[in-house]
Amino acid sequence: MSDTSTQRQGRSLAGLIPSIDFSAPRHRAKFGYLLLAPAVLLMAGIIVYPILLSVNISLQDVRIARVGATGEPWTLKNYAWLFGSSEFWHAIWVTFKLVAVVGGLSVVIGFATAMLVNQKFRGRTAVRLFVALPWAVPEVVATVIWAWMLDSSFGVVNWSLLKLGFVAEPIQFASNPGAAFAAVCFVMIWKGYPLMSIMLLAGLQSIPEEQIQAAKVDGAGPWQRFFYITMPNMLPVVGVTLVMTTLWVFRDFAIIHVLTQGGPIGATTTLSILTFEQSFEFFRMGQGATVGVITMIFCAIISRALVGRMAKSVH
């Protein structure tokens, strides 16, 4: 009974596409595209549609946009506001500072810890677990804990610094611009370096042992082996991890929102915080979407530049 129905189904499917023989070499690619089509369509729905929606809203002079409602006529008013707004240029400056500090230090710490846990020593598994731990903690949970720890009145960080005599009075992490920026950088690095470490460790483990052995036979010292064997082999991985960290810092919202809400006096207002602020606090969704679109363009350019440069450099 069931066999007959399967045969009938098979015939009907074949009947739908009767002229294409997918087993033929020239049609194999088409079969691949056919199989990929559902995923591509789904991705288009999930990724492309919201992007188009954002671009559409950014071109409308609208306070609150509603999905499915008739839109306002297109205008460049929001873009004119954006480029003439000191808040936007300040947010770009803060974002790039954050990317440079968090990205740079995360690579250094990630590389160092990756090299450490790549060595053979007793307790290596435990150390690897310890290195990866911050990455495993949910971002908001970790940030709320850090917010408590960094609280100027009741936080354990200030208490420890005072008790150890490192500071004479509590550091005002929420009301001192420099301290707030440093706190955000610290928590982002703490949260971000383990992923770099894990990815770089995978990269280190893929370096052919023969190259290192050959270099040793040729008399290369540890630093020479690092600069002439390890680094060239690692550059594509470093490139990818840098791209991922850059994009993460660019779009990260939770850590800054929970710790400082972008303050004080805009010291930690990044492009993602500005997008949220305009859209959801000031109900100026057109302006918020404009910041979002510009952020997306920045991310696309940076990703392309970093991936291209790093991938080429290994050759």
Binding site: N176, G263, I265, G266, E277, E281, F282, F283
Partner: peptide
């Protein structure tokens, strides 16, 4: 209608009164 923006502006100025 602009209340949230006014509140934010006030907060920024208030922080400047303390910090600067």
């Amino acid at each position: 209608l602009e209340n949230n923006e006014v509140v934010k502006i006030f907060f920024n100025v208030a922080q400047q009164m303390m910090i600067k």
